[in-house]
Amino acid sequence: AFSSEQLARLKREFNENRYLTERRRQQLSSELGLNEAQIKIWFQNKRA
C-alpha cells in the first residue's frame, strides 16, 4: 500500500508524463522509498 504522500507524488508525475524513463523511475524509487517495480506497475495500472 502507498502512503497518501507517495500517491500524491505519483499522481503529479503521471500528470506531467504518462511514461517514465528508467532514470526517472530510479529517482522516484529512491525519493519515495519504493522499489522500481512498484512504481512501474502503478504507472501501468494508471494508464490502463
Rank of each mutant, 00 (worst) to 15 (best):
F43S: 00
R25Y: 12
K46C: 13
F2W: 07
K40S: 15
E31N: 03
S4R: 11
Q38W: 11
Y19T: 08
G33Y: 04
F43W: 15
L28N: 00
Q44C: 09
L10H: 00
R23H: 13
Q27Y: 08
K46M: 15
N35H: 10
I41K: 12
N17M: 05
I39Q: 01
R24T: 06
R12T: 09
L28A: 00
R47P: 03
S3K: 04
E5H: 10
I39L: 07
S4I: 12
L10D: 01
S30D: 10
A48R: 13
S29R: 03
L28E: 00
E22G: 10
R12G: 05
E16H: 09
N35R: 08
Q26Y: 08
A8Y: 05
K11V: 15
E22C: 10
A37R: 10
S4H: 12
A48L: 12
L20V: 05
L10F: 02
A1E: 11
F43Q: 00
F43L: 02
R24S: 05
R47Y: 08
F2P: 04
S3E: 03
Q44D: 14
K46H: 13
S3L: 04
R24L: 08
E22S: 13
T21Y: 03
W42L: 03
N45I: 11
L34V: 10
L32M: 07
S4F: 11
K40N: 14
S4D: 14
E31P: 00
G33D: 07
Q27R: 10
E5C: 09
R47G: 06
E22Q: 13
F14P: 01
T21H: 04
G33C: 07
L34C: 06
S4W: 09
Q38A: 12
S30W: 12
F43A: 01
E22I: 12
A48T: 08
N17I: 04
R47D: 07
L20C: 06
L32I: 08
Q6W: 04
Q44H: 10
R25G: 11
Q38P: 01
Q6D: 04
L7R: 06
L7S: 04
K46Q: 15
R47H: 09
R24M: 09
S4G: 10
R47Q: 11
R23F: 11
S30E: 14
N15F: 09
A37V: 12
S3H: 03
Q26S: 08
T21R: 04
Q6H: 06
A48C: 12
E36M: 06
L32A: 02
T21F: 03
A37M: 14
A48P: 04
Q27L: 12
R12Q: 14
E5M: 07
E36Y: 04
F14K: 02
G33W: 03
A8F: 05
L28R: 01
Q6A: 07
N17C: 14
E13M: 05
N45A: 10
K40W: 13
N17H: 09
N15W: 07
K40I: 15
N17V: 04
E13L: 05
F14S: 02
R18G: 07
Q27H: 07
E16A: 09
A48V: 10
R25N: 09
Q26M: 12
G33M: 06
E22W: 09
E22F: 09
R18A: 12
F14N: 01
F2S: 02
Q26G: 06
E22L: 11
R47W: 13
K40M: 15
S29K: 03
L7K: 05
N17Y: 06
R23P: 08
L7F: 04
R25S: 15
S3P: 02
L28S: 00
L7M: 07
Y19L: 07
F43Y: 05
R12C: 11
K11H: 15
S4C: 14
A37Q: 14
L20R: 00
R23G: 11
L28F: 02
Q44L: 08
L34Q: 01
F43V: 01
L28V: 03
I39D: 01
N15L: 11
A1Y: 13
Y19I: 12
L20D: 11
R9P: 00
R9F: 06
Q6Y: 02
L10I: 02
N45H: 11
Q44K: 09
N15P: 01
A48D: 09
A8K: 09
S30C: 10
L7E: 11
E16L: 11
S3F: 03
Q27N: 07
E13W: 04
L34S: 02
L34T: 03
I41Y: 10
Q38T: 10
S29L: 03
A8D: 11
Q44F: 09
L20A: 04
K11D: 15
S3R: 04
N15H: 10
S29E: 05
A8C: 10
S30K: 14
R23D: 13
A48K: 14
N15V: 08
S29P: 01
Q6R: 03
L28K: 01
E36A: 09
N45S: 09
I41S: 11
Q38G: 03
E13Q: 03
L32Q: 00
F2I: 10
R12H: 11
R47A: 11
R24H: 06
I39R: 00
S4P: 14
Q44S: 09
Q27S: 08
N35K: 08
F14E: 02
S4L: 12
F14V: 02
E5A: 12
Q27G: 04
L34D: 00
F14C: 05
G33N: 09
I41R: 13
E5Y: 10
K11W: 15
E5K: 08
N35W: 05
S3T: 15
N17D: 07
G33K: 07
R18P: 15
R12M: 11
E13P: 01
R18D: 06
E13C: 05
A37C: 14
K40D: 15
A48Q: 11
R18C: 10
R18I: 08
S29T: 05
F14Y: 09
I39S: 00
L34A: 04
F14M: 02
S3C: 05
E13I: 06
E5I: 07
W42P: 01
Q38V: 14
Q27K: 10
E5W: 11
R23T: 14
L28W: 01
I41C: 12
L10T: 00
S4Q: 13
E16V: 08
I41D: 13
F43R: 00
R23K: 13
E13S: 05
E16R: 11
S30N: 12
A48M: 12
L34E: 00
W42T: 00
L20K: 01
R25C: 15
E16T: 10
L10Y: 01
Q38H: 07
N17W: 05
E5P: 04
A1H: 13
E31Q: 06
E16W: 07
R47I: 13
G33F: 04
L34R: 01
W42R: 01
E5N: 06
E13R: 02
L10M: 04
R9C: 06
W42D: 00
K40P: 01
R23C: 08
Q6N: 05
R47S: 09
K11I: 15
E36N: 04
